[in-house]
Write a protein that binds this DNA or RNA. Structure first.
Length: 885
DNA sequence: CGACTCACG
DNA sequence: ACGTACGTGAGTCGT
């Protein structure tokens, strides 16, 4: 077998690794405060490569500095680049250390780039009969691909690579690897900051290269081109193109002081590597080698005492002041999870046990239920529900580490205590994954020492992070948000979850059998039409049938094949009856799998109820989400799906379902925060807002009839504004031309100038501060707001304007929920709040309380906050969730 | 585990 | 020249 040569583009891989893990940059620091994400990522890449490729010689090439022969030739080469962040530059020396410990050589050469070193050695490799693999994050190196040299370019992350052989280059670009140089000479390179020929981009460059073969040949035969602007540019920029070609060409004969014989692969240097990992704090790599982390990387030790029935009272007597508490439930679903153990303590002393039954012992129960002793926890809602299952009513929660952390930064929303602690620079508690393992291997340790230690570490982390996080909330002006909204809401949500919603399984089963029959029927029709049986649920097989066998026109493609999404199928509906049948099939099978079998699976047999979990610390905007199951997306729009709601019934005879929802709450919030006079006026006048928007943007005279189509379009414009509109997006949605959509938007901004002003100012605020806020100072950071990539930046801009609106609407209903629950308790109503669906609250109540709710709920909801436009609430009542009127 | 599709606000 | 509306969760397929 041929000898193998591995050449790694050190700089580009380190950059890739750094930016790939940039969102978790703070999680990767060692004890000395050194950032380690890039080092870690580099090692991941190395392991991945060495898993498949066994080199005889290997080299990591680095850039030797900014000045190279290219900068001497062209001043602006790689000019205009942002300064490399300090968090990255500090890692380079350690990457070199790592490379050495891994048994690879590294090399750099003054005045040359890593590319040139690689190009030169790859050529030597080719000549010496090696099979060469080049690993890089830089697509430019694909010009080096040859029959014996493959170029692996990182695709996503650091381990997912795309392999470029000459065939692959041909397939992707239609040119040979060396012609990539000609292509780049013509199109230029924005990241290396050389221009290429004016107005020539990738498409044009490839076309020219295919036609002429090379830049030189192009200019030798330039007269063959027809007169055009492009030709003028080419002639004008001839010198530039030729200079760019030199810049783009990777050298194959750089004056290296080393050769292949000097870079033999040594294999891993185990001892050096262990010492290095310990210094870096790479616990997972150490664990793979069965080595303990170094002493200073290990969490500082914590002392604990095991509870027994006998020592319980005495030990509790020694506790003093506020308590940190943690009940360990290994399954995420705390309604059903077993209890693995618990810890309680005051910061000095930690008491632990595996036996959750001990919590029921009087002294402990009294402490947890005491309104005088403050408790600090992680995920208060889980703790309230868990303890409720043990008959304990947890009181006086002061600090919830998870909740506080979420308010400080919605981006770090892990549910793992160790992970959250790390985000706040606290290193003395490992993650559950590190202690319990992951996947099938995950288990609570049998070893008491290991398990209790982890519990004590968790409680200690809660205790020790409290002051720091409160201080940060204070700095962000978020104390009222935490104290008056989120923490009280936790208790309301716990109550709703515990109450659960009664679901009639028989109703679902009956619907299910009907759907099964229809499904079989449609299935048969589809197979007839297709002429064969196939898996209709497989988009791949379906795409094959529709677009290859039946030869329907391809409307849209996805990354992996043909798109068969609804909007595509709707366009094909008149081409073949199979399309309508597939739409039918999809609709029904969705109902069947998600809503019939899905819901049946989660009805608790003990009470015939479904107990969802509301996630309070997940969304980027402040909304809740609902899982296990999701009760916020039960069908309503289509009549067939809506029938599912018949199964949602009151839990007692003689009770009814009652529901109130905010009408157009987001647009009202928009009117409030933009201060737009026209929008506010329309709401104050109690207008049909979409109709009045139509009147304004289509310039209709007062009193003129507004036809349905106009209202529909205006409604889409209103939605679009809230979401951060583009003319293209609007055009797609309401089936008009892009220029018409553009005109609608312009008209909107003319009619509602306050909205336009708000959008501009909010984006500017985000650029200046890096975050946006809702009316309650809920915060969302937008790191991409100044990104170079158009896509990422645009996305951040849209979220900048959408988040204050969606988030403020979420704030409003949260406040209403807290007030509503407290009204129910104050008035001692039997009514129960069951569900929140973003702008809607669903209750169940005895029939005689319905008149009370009809008055009370709208009153509480529309006075939840004072906006400068009125809030409007509509209520409905019925015997099931389906029958609401 | 990612991609796709589709249910909701 | 780009590539497209905001926020979610679940089921299914296929690597």
């Amino acid at each position: 077998m041929a000898k193998q040569l591995l050449l790694i583009d050190g700089n580009s891989i380190v950059f890739r690794a750094f930016f790939a893990m940039h969102n978790q940059i703070d999680k990767f620091t060692n004890k000395d405060g050194l950032h380690t994400a890039a080092i870690y990522g580099f090692k991941l890449m190395l392991d991945h490569v060495l898993g498949n490729f066994h080199p005889d010689a290997a080299l990591v090439a680095f850039d030797a500095g900014k000045v190279t022969f290219r900068t001497k030739m062209y001043d602006d080469y790689k000019g205009g680049r942002n300064k490399t962040p300090e968090e990255l530059t500090e890692q380079f020396p350690y990457v070199r250390e790592l490379v050495k410990a891994c048994g690879l050589h590294s090399y750099e050469l003054k005045n040359y780039e890593a590319d040139d070193i690689i190009g030169t050695l790859a050529k030597q490799g080719d000549e010496a009969g090696y099979e060469t693999l080049i690993v890089t994050g830089d697509r430019d190196l694909t010009q080096l691909a040859s029959d014996h040299t493959t170029v692996a370019v990182t695709h996503k992350g650091v381990t997912d690579t795309e392999h470029y052989t000459p065939e692959h280059v041909e397939e992707k670009l239609g040119i040979t690897p060396t012609q990539i140089i000609d292509m780049k000479a013509l199109m230029g390179d924005t990241s290396d900051n050389y221009p290429g020929v004016t107005k020539v981009g990738e498409k044009t460059a490839i076309k020219l290269v295919k036609q002429f073969g090379s830049v030189e040949n192009l200019y030798d035969n330039i007269n063959d081109l027809k007169k055009s602007k492009m030709k003028e540019h080419l002639i004008e920029d001839e010198d530039i193109a030729k200079q760019c070609k030199t810049l783009a060409t990777i050298l194959r004969d750089a004056p290296l002081e080393i050769g292949l014989k000097d870079i033999q692969y040594q294999g891993e240097q185990t001892e050096e590597l262990i010492a290095f990992y310990q210094q870096m704090g790479f616990k997972s790599f150490l664990a793979k080698m069965n080595v303990e982390p170094s002493e200073e990387e290990q969490a500082k030790p914590v002392e604990f005492t095991e509870f027994t029935r006998d020592n319980l009272a005495d030990e509790l007597g020694n506790l003093d002041g506020e308590l940190s508490f943690f009940l360990e439930m290994p399954d995420p679903n705390y309604h059903t999870s077993p209890f693995a153990g618990f810890v309680i303590g005051d910061g000095q002393k930690w008491l632990v046990s595996r036996d959750a039954e001990l919590l029921k012992e009087a002294p402990l129960k009294e402490l947890l239920e005491s309104t005088r002793v403050a408790k600090n926890v992680f995920n208060a809602k889980a703790q309230i529900v868990g303890l409720h299952r043990l008959g304990i009513n947890l009181q006086n929660i002061d600090f919830d580490l998870l909740l506080a952390s979420y308010l400080l930064n919605t981006n770090d929303n892990s549910n793992d205590l160790g992970q959250v602690a790390l985000e706040h620079d606290y290193h003395d508690v490992p993650t559950d994954e590190e202690v319990y393992g992951k996947g099938a291997k995950r288990a609570i340790p049998d070893d008491d020492q290991v398990f209790f230690n982890h519990l004590a570490q968790k409680a200690r982390a809660i205790n020790e992070l409290k002051d720091k996080l409160f201080k940060e909330l204070e700095e962000n002006k978020q104390i009222p948000l935490y104290t008056d909204i989120e923490l009280p809401l936790t208790r309301v949500l716990a109550k709703m979850e515990i109450t659960g919603v009664h679901v009639n399984a028989q109703t679902l089963k009956n619907m299910g059998s009907k759907l099964t029959e229809r499904l079989a029927d449609i299935e048969k029709q589809i197979y007839d039409e297709a002429g064969e049986e196939f898996n209709i649920n497989s988009t791949k097989q379906l795409g094959h049938i529709l677009f290859e066998k039946l030869k329907l026109p391809v409307i849209k493609k996805t990354k992996t094949g043909y798109s068969t999404a609804v909007d595509v199928l709707e366009k094909l509906a008149d081409q073949s009856p199979i399309v309508e049948q597939i739409l039918q099939y999809r609709q029904i099978s969705k109902l069947q799998s998600t809503y019939i079998t899905g819901l049946l699976k989660v009805i608790h047999s003990s009470d015939q109820k479904i107990h969802t979990r509301y996630l309070q610390t997940l969304t980027q905007t402040g909304r809740l989400s609902s899982v296990d199951p999701n009760l916020q997306n039960i069908p309503v729009r289509l009549p067939e799906g809506r029938l599912i709601r018949k199964a949602f019934v009151p839990s007692h005879e003689g009770w009814q379902i009652f529901s109130s929802d905010y009408s157009q709450v987001e647009l009202r919030v928009l009117a409030h925060i933009t201060g737009d006079k026209n929008l506010q006026e329309d709401f104050k006048n109690g207008e049909d807002i979409h109709a009045s928007t139509a009147r304004r943007i289509f310039h209709l005279p007062a009193g003129a009839e507004i036809d349905r189509n106009m209202r529909r379009r205006a409604k889409a414009v209103n939605f679009g504004i809230v979401y951060g509109i583009s003319d293209y997006g609007l055009a797609q949605r309401i089936h008009v031309t892009r220029s018409q959509a553009h005109e609608f938007i312009q008209n909107y901004f003319k009619e509602f100038p306050g909205v336009k002003k708000y959008i501009d100012e909010t984006i500017q605020f985000a650029r200046d501060h890096g975050y946006v806020e809702t009316i309650t100072h809920r915060r969302r950071y937008l790191p991409d707001i100044n990104a170079k990539s158009f896509n990422r930046r645009s996305f951040a801009e849209r979220t900048a304007m959408n988040t204050p609106i969606q988030g403020s609407a979420a704030d409003i209903i949260k406040i209403a929920m807290i007030r509503m629950q407290s009204e129910i308790e104050k008035r001692q109503l039997k009514a129960k709040m069951l569900l929140q669906i973003h702008d809607e609250l669903v209750f169940e109540a005895p029939a005689d309380e319905i008149p009370v709710l009809k008055k009370l709920v709208p009153q509480v909801m529309d006075s939840a906050v004072k906006l400068n436009v009125p809030l409007k609430v509509e209520s409905k009542v019925g015997d099931t969730w389906y029958d609401l009127k």
